[in-house]
């Protein structure tokens, strides 16, 4: 197979398409990092909150990735036109909210159990409040951005695999971190 026939699979082309985007996204997520470093005092006082951070950042991105990966494959196979009457789209959205509810409840429970071992003043009620209110807000943002970016990249003729997942996960990461830090400092403060 010649390099030319590799088309969009040539590594130079993949890097060329994605690297500038990765840089922009890193700058965007830097905001989440500054928010985290700014909350260092709260984190040092209530170290159990640090345990929630990676899951908080990821789960929104995970849900967005599940949804956009499914949407972009449907575009590749030519099976969708993003019709709001398409029941499969609604099934995806419903599944995402159900997953968010389950995972963020489990996050609060898991963190609470670890807290019993590590020692903490945070109650299960506080952890559930922090986890679910941040988590469900992030799920809404994940759904909106998954649809918007998949549709936009399809219309602009950019391969959604190279753009959708990065954009969704990063925007959701930033919102997730900012919402989480805001909610937790309010709840424990």
């Amino acid at each position: 197979m010649s390099t030319r026939s590799l088309g969009t699979w040539r590594w130079q082309r993949i890097v060329g398409n994605t690297f500038p985007l990765l840089l922009v996204l890193s700058v965007v997520v830097l905001w989440a990092g500054l928010t985290l470093e700014g909350a260092e005092e709260t984190l040092s006082e209530f170290t159990l909150l640090a345990v929630m951070v990676p899951t908080m950042v990821d789960t929104g991105g995970n849900l967005g990735a599940i949804l956009s990966s499914r949407l972009s494959t449907r575009f590749h196979l030519g099976t969708t036109e993003l019709d709001p009457r398409d029941p499969v789209l609604w099934a995806n959205v419903a599944a995402v909210f159900g997953l968010a509810l389950s995972v963020f409840t489990a996050l609060a429970l898991g963190t609470f159990l670890l807290g019993q071992v590590l020692g903490t003043e945070l109650t299960l009620g506080q952890l559930l409040l922090i986890s679910l209110s941040s988590g469900m807000s992030v799920a809404v943002i994940a759904v909106v951005f998954s649809f918007a970016t998949t549709y936009a990249s399809y219309r602009l003729g950019v391969d959604p695999d190279d753009t959708t997942i990065p954009i969704v996960t990063n925007v959701v990461d930033v919102f997730g971190m900012v919402i989480f830090v805001t909610v937790s400092t309010t709840v424990v403060g």
Binding site: L25, S26, G33, P54, V57, P166
Partner: peptide
């Protein structure tokens, strides 16, 4: 967060 997000990207 930037490092973790990049793994995802």
């Amino acid at each position: 967060p930037v490092f973790l997000a990049t793994r995802g990207n």
